[in-house]
Design a protein around this nucleic acid. Structure first.
Lengths: 344, 344
DNA sequence: ACTTGGCACTCGCTCTTGTCGAGTGCCAAG
DNA sequence: CTTGGCACTCGACAAGAGCGAGTGCCAAGT
């Protein structure tokens, strides 16, 4: 489709534009080593590239700027993993060997790490609780009429929901309910244990509800509360370095729009998932379909825990982002994160 | 200090500048009802106000702009709570009657609510875990060598820490350790139960460590892990509507700096606490001492749960923010939040 | 057939200039 | 003490000139 010379020129334009954010002219390309033809020839080729949709001119007497298609060609032609800067590699391994504590804290830290590495905004989406296995259920009395149910999941995260009832509740009812829920839920996945129960009306209650009426109320309230709290996938999304977007764009309005999107976490989740479903790691400009993000590209990668798909990480930057660095950083971090989570 | 006419003029300038962000000239003020003097007189007064430090001129032939001192006078002279817009009041009560779920989710929602009400960035700092009473301690086995310890606190929040040991650990050791920790910690405040233990070397171990050596290791690891995780107060900070800062300022650089600060949550906490310690609810421009936020004002208010100081909420806006609205919104939300948390 | 240097042309950027108007400080008169 | 008048300052805006980068085209060369 593109002969070698056109491809070189296109790559040169993309690289230079990414560096300088200035339209690239024919004479600049001609001066590059390894080109060896005159500006006039470059111009002819550039005209062709423009007609084919890879380049565009902001105005008649300016240099060329890559279109989304131009970036796409560039990204696709990357001879991948050209290694990552040793300092960064060091930073990543230092972070993952240092990080301790709750999984949420780690994921949050990961988003900041990735943001620092790339100088763009980074998103980390944690493993969905859906598929985790319930390891423990516990009801704890808080006040006269309120309690809290706490689920500990196999991936080390925690799900909880407050419970409020109209009658005064005693420790014995709590204990009974707690035992019942343990028997019924421990060992199941969240999806089976909670969500199914919430929607259909308790299909096969293997374990009968306790005959203590108050305990029974507590149990249903607990499951009810948990299934509601599951609807928000948002608590598993961590955005780091959103402020880098303010550096990447100089139009305040663009910054506003991008931050707006990043605050709507469900949008971010579906965007990343959508990109991945289409078999891409990079979505450029309009490719991802969100109009306010037309000047943004997204680099995304899944990560695996114990060999299974667990979650996503991604980077948001301007369309003229540093793709090679971003790609390698995302790849490195996703691998490291998966490894770290697997070993815990 | 300021006679009534000077005060009126100053107030007029502040109000107008807040509305339009344009320097205010003498003739504009003179046209206001209730002033009744000519522009020339206004000018004289303005000169005086400038010499006294309440106003300043961006350049010689422009109108006047309030200084931090000018805003300060304006804020102090507010005849407080001039009522809040009914729609907003409705929005607040709707939110607090609707909101359910974990306290963190509520606080996060509160920050978004406050951001929406004011159109500025809002911060909600949750009740510190330090003073909460431990209601339950539980160890849950996750893998062969890993477990997690979960604390349920009296305010409904949860503290957790992962535990890793070198030897394989069985359910019985976990149970023993769990029982031990329950006996020792339940009923104490986090501060006493965890932090003291962490620093000094277990002063009066009322309950002897279990003789099961592995269980003993688990216990110390658990307390150790918990005391580390306590160091980050940051998980109790919720920032909402940061994107409003991008609308409030038109210099990208300023936006960047402000977002930068807002991402450093410990800075935000100490800033708000500091303002409150000085007995203020509003810190204007340089008053709060953070140079990058020189163009920002902060409105802050504590909220009380069951009559006790529990946490802080605050609003970050430009120095020319709408103080009356922000003050009433913050007051309303802090009261509502306190009430909502008290009843749970 | 492809490449190349030359050339006229376009158009954005920057600097200068001039005009306009808002707002000031000062002053003398009321 | 207030007021209207007045000269002055200075930023904002528009128009115009010059510059330079970069283009498209073309005729000549290999």
């Amino acid at each position: 489709m593109l002969d070698e010379r056109k491809a070189s020129i296109l790559r040169a334009v993309v690289e230079e534009y990414i560096e300088t954010a200035q339209p690239v002219g024919s004479s600049w390309v001609a001066r590059l080593p390894g080109i060896g033809v005159s500006p006039a020839t470059i111009r002819k080729e550039m005209m062709a590239l423009e007609q084919e949709g890879f380049l565009t001119q902001p105005h008649i007497s300016a240099g060329r700027v890559p279109t989304d298609m131009g970036y796409r060609f560039f990204v696709d032609s990357l001879t991948d993993t050209e290694g990552i800067d040793a300092a960064s590699r060091e930073q990543v391994s230092a972070f993952f060997s240092r990080t301790r504590g709750a999984i949420e804290v780690m994921l949050h830290g990961t988003s900041k790490l990735l943001a620092n590495l790339t100088d763009y905004a980074a998103v980390v989406i944690g493993p969905p609780h859906e598929d985790a296995v319930i390891r423990s259920v516990q009801l704890v009395l808080l006040g006269d009429r309120s309690a809290i149910v706490v689920l500990v999941l196999s991936n080390g995260s925690i799900e909880r929901a407050p419970i409020e009832v109209t009658e005064q509740v005693g420790q014995d009812s709590i204990d009974r309910a707690s035992r019942y829920l343990s028997q019924r839920l421990v060992g199941q996945t969240v999806k089976h244990g909670i969500n199914v129960e919430g929607s259909t009306k308790k299909p096969t209650s293997l374990v009968p509800l306790p005959d203590d009426e108050l305990a029974a109320v507590l149990c249903t309230a607990a499951i009810q509360g948990l299934s509601v709290s599951k609807d928000h996938a948002s608590d598993q999304v961590f955005v780091g370095g959103a402020l880098h977007m303010a550096q990447a764009f100089d139009a305040v309005e663009t910054v506003r729009q991008v931050l707006d999107i990043l605050e709507q976490q469900y949008l971010v989740v579906s965007l990343l998932q959508d990109v991945l479903d289409r078999g891409l790691n990079v979505a450029i400009g309009h490719e991802h379909g969100l109009e306010p993000l037309a000047d943004c590209s997204v680099v995304v990668s899944p990560y695996e825990v114990d060999g299974e798909h667990a979650g996503l990480i991604g980077v948001f930057g301007p369309t003229r982002m540093h793709y090679p660095e971003a790609l390698t950083a995302v790849a490195l971090v996703s691998k490291s994160l998966g490894r770290r989570l697997s070993e815990a």
